[in-house]
């Protein structure tokens, strides 16, 4: 469904992505692992249209999205749950969720989605009318995921959902991502926590300084000598 072909991205003179190619099939959970500054967030930003590829193409269901506006890309059903959560701090929980559905035309259907998100994260229901800024880090991460789900995305991208969370919450995030995957959502997961990501994913790409250095089934990547020593600490 999504295909990046030889994508180059620059920040000024910094060459952040170097001829990156990757693809995601419908229903797959694909992960992108790599160290600090490898270009994982840049890859997601480029898919969302926040950064533009200088060279290369990005297609979604065969349609070129490399030059589309962020709004058009969201309307095609690509949602991103960004690094650092980025909830709107002075909006309430419900208002944040409503913003996730901003581009949806079927506003009368939203009730169902709220209910579904509240059953996934009951704590958000309790905090419905609270401002997002008053939530704990874990609750904010749940809200950021809920907000992305409000789009009913065809492709859901997570940027480091476990970052800064206590181990028990990391486990909770892993469960939720696994659940969404089992329900058939197509997912692109970016993680520094390579262990967790490789455990959840069907396939994986390893990024190093802007280049894809390894790709394959999660199992084969897990077994790779270099990956084991560089990312898994054994």
């Amino acid at each position: 469904m999504l295909q990046l072909t030889d994508v180059d991205v620059y920040y000024g003179r910094v060459h952040a992505l170097k001829s990156v190619s990757l693809r995601i099939e419908e229903g797959e959970l694909v992960t992108l692992v790599g160290a600090n500054g490898a270009g994982k967030s840049t890859t997601l930003k480029t898919i969302s249209g926040m950064q533009r590829p200088r060279n290369g193409t990005i297609t979604f269901y065969g349609e070129d999205i490399g030059t589309k506006s962020m709004e058009q890309i969201v309307k095609l059903g690509i949602a991103q749950c960004p690094e650092g959560r980025r909830v709107f701090p002075d909006l309430t929980v419900v208002e944040n969720l409503r913003m996730g559905a901003y581009t949806r035309k079927d506003k009368s259907e939203l009730k169902k989605d709220y209910d579904e998100i509240f059953s996934l994260f009951p704590i958000l229901n309790e905090r419905k009318q609270q401002s997002a800024g008053s939530l704990s880090g874990g609750e904010q991460q749940m809200l950021a995921i809920g907000r992305a789900l409000m789009l009913r995305p065809r492709l859901l991208m997570f940027d480091e959902p476990s970052l800064g969370l206590a181990p028990i919450l990391v486990e909770k995030m892993a469960e939720v991502i696994n659940l969404l995957h089992n329900r058939g959502t197509t997912i692109l997961l970016v993680e520094q926590n390579a262990e967790m990501a490789l455990r959840l994913a069907d396939r994986a790409y390893v990024l190093e300084t802007g280049r894809v250095v390894l790709e394959g089934s999660s199992q084969s990547v897990l077994n790779d000598e270099h990956v084991r020593s560089a990312y898994l600490g054994n």
Binding site: M70, V74, F88, E95, M99, T103
Partner: peptide
């Protein structure tokens, strides 16, 4: 909804753009 989108943009422009807010 538009007013809420304006407030969202005020608080975090990039995150607002990720919601598809123009």
């Amino acid at each position: 909804t538009l007013g809420t989108a304006i407030r969202a943009t005020f608080q975090d422009r990039d995150a607002a753009a990720l919601m598809g807010i123009n």
